[in-house]
Amino acid sequence: MEASDPATSSSEDVRARWSAGLRDAAARAYASGHGADPPAPQPTRWRLDARSAATAAAVLAVIAAVAWWGLRGEPATPLAVVASASPSALAGAPAVAGAPAALIVHVSGAVRSPGLVELRAGARVADAIELAGGLARRADESSVNLARTVADGEHIVVGRVNAAGAPVGSAAAPARVDLNTADTAALETLPGVGEVLAARIVADREANGPFAAVEDLERVSGVGPSIVGAIADLATT
């Protein structure tokens, strides 16, 4: 059995006597001030109610979240707020899916600023004329359909009227030639019909009866589809 170190034992005895002296001094001071011996020391116990525990847990959670966010090293990105489009913002949108976003139209004739104008899809002739400066003096408004929807690349021509109010360049439409009553002289006024052919037409209708339609002229020798097409708008039956 090893012998204890005399120096160590002496040091421990000194500390023990010193501690005992301090306790005795404290006890005497307490007794002198309170008139009674100090109470026996009790072990300290920590008690934490449910509310305090919940508060502490919440604080720890916030601290942990802040520490984690700071360690990420990335700036927070604010959420983008998308506003609903207003009706005025949608006014210039194409009316039909797949339609061009803009139309280019040529406006000429009796307008104040003839030339090319740019319109949105779904615009009308009235819109094109307005962008061309509006109708000029003595414009023939009836020469165009102002309510018609325009098409990309089209040419809108506004006519004029003369001082008398008649459309410029227009003339009274000639009376149509009646193939069943006209004489040879009247028939010769038709395109492609000469003296000989006019005589054949008169002879045919006298022999075979009146023509029911302009196309019936093809039964006359020398009259073909080209002549019928040329006189279709100038003759009648």
Rank of each mutant, 00 (worst) to 15 (best):
V117H: 09
R219D: 06
R120Y: 02
S108M: 15
R137V: 13
L103A: 06
N145W: 00
T149F: 11
I129M: 04
D152E: 05
A102D: 10
A185E: 13
L135G: 03
P114C: 08
V202N: 01
L146F: 09
E218T: 15
S108E: 14
V125P: 01
V220G: 05
S226A: 15
E215M: 04
V111D: 13
A173I: 10
A121S: 15
A213I: 04
G169P: 03
A171S: 13
L187P: 10
E188W: 00
A171L: 08
F211P: 02
L179A: 07
V202Y: 00
G153S: 09
F211S: 04
P191T: 02
V150L: 04
R176T: 10
L119H: 08
P94Y: 02
A110V: 06
S108F: 14
V107L: 04
R124E: 06
A139D: 09
E206L: 11
I129Q: 00
A172T: 14
F211W: 03
A121M: 03
A97F: 13
S221P: 03
A213L: 03
V214E: 02
G165P: 09
H106Q: 13
L217T: 02
A126L: 12
T189R: 15
L131A: 12
A123R: 10
F211K: 02
E130I: 01
G115T: 13
S143R: 10
S226T: 15
G122S: 13
V107M: 05
G115E: 07
T181C: 01
R205A: 07
A136H: 14
A163D: 02
E141Y: 02
A101N: 11
A123W: 10
P225F: 08
D127L: 02
P167A: 09
L197C: 07
A213T: 14
S170H: 04
R124W: 04
L131M: 10
D183P: 10
G222Y: 14
A121K: 00
D152W: 06
E118C: 10
T181K: 11
A164V: 07
A126R: 15
V105S: 01
P100R: 00
P100K: 00
E195C: 00
V157Y: 12
A171I: 08
A182R: 02
A213G: 13
P225C: 01
T184G: 10
R176D: 08
A95G: 09
A101K: 14
V105C: 03
P114Q: 12
P114V: 11
I227Q: 00
D216L: 04
N208Q: 09
D127K: 03
A163W: 01
D204F: 12
S113D: 13
E130F: 04
A132Y: 09
P167T: 05
A164D: 15
D140N: 09
V144W: 05
P191H: 03
P174Y: 12
G109W: 04
A207Y: 11
L146D: 00
A171Q: 12
A101I: 11
E218L: 03
R160N: 11
V107H: 06
R219Q: 10
D204S: 07
S143G: 08
G209F: 01
A198I: 07
V105F: 03
L146P: 02
V150A: 01
L187K: 05
A175D: 08
S143M: 08
A147T: 13
T149L: 13
L217W: 05
V105N: 01
A110N: 05
R176N: 06
A175L: 11
